[in-house]
Every structure is written in structure tokens, then in C-alpha cells.
Write a protein that binds this DNA or RNA. Structure first.
Lengths: 335, 335
DNA sequence: CTGTTAGCGCGTTCAT
DNA sequence: ATGAACGCGCTAACAG
């Protein structure tokens, strides 16, 4: 591989001049030399060495993105937004996946610190576990002490820049919208009992019912994924009582629930209404189409990068609201 | 940020010793010193500088993955497989997205070359455009000349390691399976006319019909995504004739087609059978469930990394077969 | 506008 | 088993 020095020699100029023309310095270089350097670089197939640049500059151009599962469209959409934003900044994304294991989250932050990533974005719900949280915080602290910028997409429990989806509020609004359609008796497919996102959404939903003077929802817990929704829905069917409307705390769970209901001969929305949360694009062609709370996932990813890069010590917090989207999976209660 | 030298000084040992204990050298270090170094490193919050390591070693631990669109579950699944494999090798993935623009593909390879990525994996169909292909090949050549390893997932047109899905064969098998159900008159939602994957699948399908002595399928082109399938399906409806079964060259297009058919009152599979290709997991809950050709997407991603890392000059090629999965979106022709 | 030179943090000979 | 010293490729003063 040709080095800058090779190019400089080949062009008959100094190292510094070659550096100035090839790698964005603000300094000016005469047209003749610039020409010579450029053609030498082309001829030799010169490519900068980013590692050397990082070392010399003391700053890399990578941003780390930590998500839980790339095959979950929720995270894919967020990562996509982050990648596009990084792209606009001329930065490169190294993407890490935790497989929903908080330990891996910590390890990834360490790795990204080693890369001297300019920023680290962490997406995914925090777990209500103080000890693992403390260790993550510690790892983030050493990263930030070294000048690293951090933003999370989710709960603001790390003292970092935060893009906070209004989970509680969105679920609250959803409950109000569903009650307005005449529903009085609800169930919640509530996700894992220790996942903050799931908790917030379930609580927001319940609190709206309470404000409306309705009975608290039946709550069934389950994993935060498609199969969790399926299982929870099956469990619900065994004890449904007079429930007319089911709120799943995310679309992926709602998808599983839909399948479970169908397999058990329960027709949505005729026999039971169903709502989700997130508005995952690739799920828009489900039948019936899912009523949900739309979150601007890609924008959340790019916003997180902006927040992280703007981090000047006083972490900013940006809330993003969700909008209730009524589709075919719910119907008014008649009579 | 603490450097190795800081740690060495703090532990009262030489730089070399500190390096040996902290960063996997094969050399042995006495237990006492090892202990001291480790506790100093912990106390100072030392984290290796990957850039410095890369420079000193002359090799990075990043692998580049180039895909077209992260929100397309096909690519997300492949990238997921690649990330898991990289993880097992202790490597880190920088993920680049082309937005289906071949120019971006070239730029990304250059960027990854700059990172001195140990391997570059490129997923996504080649386009039948010689000039852009030549330029991509040229960029890959300078990367490979510098010792970079490359593997593509798709057509073997770059002279690199290749994970080749058996598109032609899978589509052929699908046609045979559908004909066995009694279908005699087919249409193909064929994707863009210059996309090799789309071409191979459409041709494989047609060639089976020909072998079976059936009429060639009606062909309608469209973008390789959900909306392309939707549009193509609409077009097809205007000229359908006696077609009883539609083959979309991928599941995402089939999803769009399903929506188009439904909106136009055409019931699948009652009025029309529909098949796709890929077996995207997140689409398995569509109703009716999609008949498709299953591809082991995650494995293709990890296989690509293996191929790339094994690259010793003579690029290997690994074909991966697809398996026809019959589901509810097709039904036998009765009478 | 151009050239010289001193590091950036670490791996790795080569001595000891 | 341990340490001293050089070099990886590049940027950024500084000098001219």
C-alpha cells in the first residue's frame, strides 16, 4: 500500500504539501503542485490510512451505535437514521449488537472507547437493575472522561444526552383514543416486568384508564418480541373475561398476538380490538393493519447523533412524541 | 485518557512489559508484575488505543459490511449474521449503506480501505452496468492489492470470494412446485430489468415453465422493494388474462403485491395465488402466509466473512440453496 | 505557498 | 523474564 510519503516523493514535493492537498487541510496549495500530487496519488492508488490519521489528529471519525437486535425492525430503523446522519457528517458507523444482554452493552462501550469513537449512541430500553446500570455508567464515565460523547435513545437514566420517546404519554393517548371508541374493558400485553420502556407504556395506558374512571387493564407479561406477544396473547385468551380491546406495548408483540388470536379463532377487530406501539414500517401490510403509536424512529437515530456531538458537558434531553394512528385492528364498540 | 506509558510508569515497569500483559502478546510475564500492571490499568481506567494498535501492527480488527438498505429486512438479516460472525472473531463491524446507489458502493469500499479493514463484505445484487462495475472492480483491486480480503453475497462477477444464492435454481423449483399444484398460467413481478438477482430469479422461473411445456409467464417489472411490488401488481391487474399464479422475485415485493391485490378486491389465494422469495422472518405473520423460497440469510452473512478471511488469492465460491416453502398464499387449482 | 520536524500510542525487535 | 529504542503513517506547529 502506497503511503503519503511515497506520493510526496513520486510528486517531488514535501510530505506536508502532499498531506495538505490530499487530506482536507484548510491551507492553500499552488495549482501546479496540487495537480502533480493528485495525479501521483491516483497513479499509486494511494488511500489515506485512517488509523494514522486518528493517531495524529487525536480524534477518529467513527461513531459507535449500540443496539440490541438488528433483526428487530425497531432497532434497524433507528440504526438506519443514525447511519444516515453519520454519513452527512462524513463519519463512519461501527455497529454493535447486544443480543439484549446488558453485559454486552458494557463490553461494546469499552470496545468503542478503544476505537476512540467520537460518539457512542445506545438504543434500547434500560433494565431496572441497579448493579448492571452502575457498571454501564462507570464504563461510560471513563469514555466520557476521555472526551467521548454519549447519547442514549430511551430512558434518561445515565446522565447523558437523551432522546426520550414519550412512551407514557403515547400510551396514555392511545388509551384515550380507544376509550373514545367505546371500549371499557382492556388488557395489556405488557412485556418483561423489568424493562423500563415496557413499564412506561403499560403504566401510561393504565393511568389513562384510571383518569377515565375505567377499570385497570388485565396485565399479561411476556418477552418484548414477536413470540412474547404470541405467548402473552395465548395466556390472555385463557382468562379474557369481558375484555374488548388489547394493547400490546410494541408492534412486534402485537404481531405475535395477532397470530395467536387468529390461530384461536378470535377475529381482530371483530371479536377483539388490538393496538400496538412504534409503527414499524415493514409491518404496515399486516391484516388487519395495526392501530399504533407512531414514533419517528429514523429521526430518533439522527437526533441522537446530533445530541451526542453537541454534548458539551451539560447533557441535553430531547423528547419525541408519538402520534396515535387508528387503523383496522380496532373498531368501535357498537351498542 | 491514560496511555500505556502512563500505566507502565504507574506500575513501575517498562512500556514493553505493560504492553505484553495488557494486549495479548504470547510472551510471558511474571505473576507479580502482571498483577501490578493490571491493577494500575484498572485504576487509571486504561483503554487500548485501537488506532495506535492498528498502526503499530499494520492490521486493524474491523471488517466492513456494505449493504444497500438497513430497513430492508433482507439486508438486516445478512448484516446480523455478519456481525455475529465478526464478533466471534473478536472483530468489529463498520456498516455502510448505499441506498441502492452503486456509486456509494465504490465510495464505501474506498472508505473501508482507508480504515484498513481486514475484510469487506458486499451484499446486494450487482447491476448489469459495465462501467460502474469496472470502477467498483478497480477500487476493490487497490484494496486487495493492499492485502484486503473481499467477499460478495450475490453474483460472482467481481472475481472475489462469493456467497452465491441459487436464485435461478430456487425460482425453478418454485415454478415446478406451483405447476404441480395445477397452475398453468403464470405472471412474474420481475423487479428492475438490470438487476442480476431479479433477472436470475425471473429467468429461472421462466425456464422451468418452458421445460414443463407451459407458456412463458407474463412479466411486469417494478422496483425491487415493497412499493415496486405494489405498482407491478396494479399493472398486472390491468392485463391479467387467465393468470392464476403470480411469482414475485422477492418477499418484499410480494408484500406490496398482496396489498395491491387486496385493495382491488382480488383475494389471495382464492382468486390468485402468490409466491415470493427469501423467506423474510418478519413477514411470516402476513395473511395469507407467503409461499416462498427460504434463504439462510444470517448464515450467508457469516459465511461471507469466513470466505473473505480465508481468501488466499484464489477466491472461493460457496453456493447456498433455497428451499421451497409452501404456505397459504398459494392453493391448488381445482378442476 | 512550501518544507522540516516532532510527536500521536503502541508493537516489536534486540539487548540484557 | 524484562527493558530500551525504533518505526508504523500521518498531522500540525514552526520556520522559511
Amino acid at each position: 500500500m502506497a503511503t503519503l510519503e511515497d506520493v510526496a516523493r513520486h510528486a517531488g514535493v514535501s510530505l506536508a504539501t502532499a498531506s495538505r492537498v490530499l487530506n482536507g487541510s484548510t491551507r492553500q496549495v499552488g495549482a501546479a503542485m496540487r495537480q502533480r500530487v493528485e495525479s501521483s496519488a491516483a497513479k499509486l492508488g494511494y488511500r489515506v490510512d485512517a488509523a494514522a490519521q486518528t493517531l495524529a489528529r487525536g480524534a477518529s471519525n467513527v461513531v459507535g451505535v449500540v443496539i440490541q437486535d438488528l433483526t428487530d425492525p425497531y432497532f434497524a430503523a433507528i440504526a438506519d437514521g443514525a447511519i444516515r446522519a453519520a454519513d452527512r457528517h462524513g463519519m463512519v458507523v461501527t455497529l454493535g449488537t447486544t443480543y439484549r444482554d446488558p453485559e454486552r452493552e458494557i463490553a461494546l462501550v469499552a470496545t468503542l472507547n478503544a476505537q476512540r469513537a467520537r460518539a457512542v449512541l445506545i438504543a434500547g430500553s434500560r433494565v431496572a437493575d441497579e448493579t448492571v446500570l452502575r457498571r454501564l455508567r462507570a464504563e461510560l464515565d471513563v469514555y466520557r472522561a476521555a472526551g467521548g460523547r454519549v447519547a442514549v435513545i430511551g430512558q434518561d437514566v445515565l446522565g447523558t444526552g437523551t432522546v426520550a420517546p414519550l412512551n407514557r404519554e403515547g400510551a396514555y393517548d392511545m388509551a384515550v383514543a380507544l376509550a373514545r371508541l367505546g371500549h371499557r374493558r382492556f388488557a395489556t400485553l405488557a412485556g418483561p416486568p423489568n424493562l423500563l420502556t415496557a413499564i412506561d407504556r403499560a403504566e401510561g395506558f393504565a393511568s389513562a384508564l384510571s383518569d377515565l374512571g375505567l377499570r385497570p387493564p388485565l396485565e399479561v407479561h411476556g418477552a418484548f418480541d414477536r413470540d412474547g406477544g404470541y405467548d402473552a396473547a395465548c395466556e390472555l385468551l385463557a382468562m379474557r373475561g369481558d375484555v374488548t380491546c388489547v394493547f400490546a406495548v410494541n408492534d412486534v408483540m402485537a404481531t405475535g398476538a395477532l397470530a395467536a388470536f387468529r390461530e384461536n379463532g378470535v377475529h381482530v377487530p371483530h371479536d377483539l380490538s388490538l393496538a400496538g406501539f412504534d409503527d414499524i414500517a415493514s409491518l404496515r401490510d399486516l391484516v388487519p393493519s395495526l392501530t399504533t403509536v407512531r414514533l419517528p424512529l429514523a429521526r430518533m437515530g439522527s437526533l441522537a447523533l446530533d445530541l451526542a456531538l453537541a454534548d458539551d458537558g451539560v447533557p441535553r434531553r430531547e423528547s419525541v412524541g408519538g402520534e396515535v394512528v387508528l387503523r383496522d385492528s380496532v373498531r368501535p364498540v357498537t351498542g
